[in-house]
Simulated assay, not measured.
Amino acid sequence: MRRQPLLAVGGARAATVLWELGYGGRVVLLGAAEHPPYERPPLSKGYLLGDDPFEKALVHPLGWYAEHDVDLRLGVTATGLDTDAHVLTTSAGDLTYERLLLATGAEPRVLDVAEEADVPVAYLRTLEDSDRLRAAFGDGKRIAVVGGGWIGLEVAAAARTAGSDVTVFEMEDLPLLRVLGPTVAEVIADLHREHGVDLRLGTEVTVQDLEGADLVVAGIGVRPRVDLAHDGGLDVDDGVLVDSRLRTSVPSVLAVGDIANHAHPRLGRRIRVEHWDTAIKQGKVAAHNLAGGDEEYEEMPYFFTDQYDLGMEYVGRASAEDEVVVHGSLEDREFRAYWLSDGDVVAAMHVNDWDASDVIKEAVESGELPDEEA
């Protein structure tokens, strides 16, 4: 019987689609954690805030896997890969496969200065990480966040909502400057200042800066987990190199999610996207190709965030140098923003304008700026 070992949340979505397709082979889903596969956005949003139960983050309840002929093996770590022999070595023994999907994700970059400081240091990647942060927040607790990216800012918002004193250290002149550019990044900075966050911008954090904190949260990005890919002789360069159909340099092995450095057919270049939505959607396309299909992955990157009373969605891929056109009110924090490169819309977002979800997606799909009243 054919076997399709899968890994992580992208693997869980692929397993779902394989079942929906009526795939007749055996599907094995491996996970190093003891929990069933879950989606990570709640770990820095609703779950971290205490608003949502963990069960809401599960891809499926535990019983779903056995009921749908998916061999779910929790607490099992993949330790080696022989792509010639089609053998995956794991902590629970060797596993042979016909086709393999790698969705090994990423791990937080270690902040050396935080590790050197005589204060507790935390990262946010797992359920246990989120539990630790939530337990550390509270009235009067001093939380230092190093890194003004999406994770750092969401943690800062959750900590302030819980009553903690929060300081954010960011090397750029504004949080999210490289992603949003100065016009929109200033809106995010003002939002946090209004909620009492001490933003230390354009500065490199020191050990002395962190002294006296009850907890330091390091949010300086992640590294793709590519040891298994290296072991299997796959081509690796800022992630695992995959083609437009998510196939690695060894056609029987596919890769999705944080590790996939993907030849995007519409963008005409490689991108590696570290967002939950991409892992899920790539997992679905990979499932079709694992089952013998020949689909390209053409979706544009998407993510969302909720911070205080601000909610937003973002589609596409822009740089800080791209022109930004804003429709709506930056001051009221209800607007749509469009990033243009050579006159084409390459990214778009809305802030607190939920009627605009389809509008911004269509703008990026077509490359055309909507005819809206600014």
Rank of each mutant, 00 (worst) to 15 (best):
114 A>D: 00
146 V>C: 08
169 F>P: 08
144 A>C: 12
136 A>G: 10
165 D>E: 14
172 E>I: 02
176 L>Y: 08
117 A>P: 07
126 T>C: 15
140 G>Y: 14
104 T>K: 02
74 L>M: 02
135 A>M: 07
78 A>W: 02
137 F>G: 07
165 D>Y: 04
72 L>V: 02
73 R>Q: 03
77 T>E: 11
153 L>H: 03
93 G>Y: 01
82 D>H: 06
178 R>Q: 11
70 V>N: 00
147 G>I: 00
161 T>L: 13
91 S>P: 02
109 R>V: 11
173 D>W: 14
154 E>T: 05
104 T>E: 03
178 R>V: 03
168 V>F: 08
87 V>L: 15
157 A>P: 00
107 E>V: 12
113 V>K: 04
83 T>M: 03
80 G>S: 15
142 R>I: 04
169 F>Q: 04
149 G>P: 01
145 V>N: 13
168 V>T: 04
105 G>I: 01
102 L>G: 06
118 D>H: 10
162 A>K: 08
95 L>N: 06
139 D>H: 12
99 R>E: 04
97 Y>M: 07
78 A>K: 01
81 L>I: 12
95 L>V: 03
82 D>A: 06
177 L>Q: 09
114 A>I: 00
174 L>K: 01
121 V>G: 09
101 L>S: 00
96 T>H: 03
80 G>W: 15
154 E>G: 04
93 G>I: 01
86 H>N: 06
164 S>L: 10
87 V>D: 05
158 A>P: 02
152 G>H: 05
90 T>H: 10
134 R>L: 07
148 G>S: 13
143 I>K: 05
75 G>E: 06
96 T>A: 04
138 G>A: 10
170 E>R: 00
132 R>E: 13
97 Y>A: 03
124 L>Q: 08
92 A>Q: 06
68 H>A: 14
122 A>F: 14
179 V>G: 14
113 V>Q: 06
179 V>E: 13
129 D>C: 14
85 A>L: 08
126 T>N: 15
107 E>G: 13
112 D>C: 11
126 T>P: 12
151 I>C: 13
161 T>H: 12
108 P>K: 05
114 A>M: 01
70 V>E: 01
150 W>D: 06
103 A>F: 03
139 D>C: 10
142 R>Q: 07
102 L>I: 12
106 A>K: 01
73 R>K: 02
140 G>R: 13
116 E>R: 15
111 L>T: 02
160 R>P: 00
130 S>T: 14
112 D>K: 11
156 A>S: 08
176 L>D: 06
117 A>G: 12
102 L>N: 09
152 G>P: 02
80 G>T: 12
77 T>Y: 08
129 D>I: 11
146 V>E: 02
141 K>G: 10
155 V>D: 14
117 A>L: 10
134 R>V: 01
127 L>W: 10
141 K>D: 12
141 K>V: 12
73 R>S: 00
115 E>A: 15
95 L>K: 02
98 E>W: 05
76 V>P: 06
153 L>W: 03
84 D>W: 05
106 A>W: 01
174 L>C: 04
149 G>H: 05
88 L>N: 00
104 T>H: 05
79 T>E: 15
165 D>Q: 13
133 L>H: 09
147 G>P: 00
106 A>V: 04
80 G>N: 13
69 D>C: 12
153 L>T: 08
118 D>M: 10
94 D>T: 09
161 T>W: 13
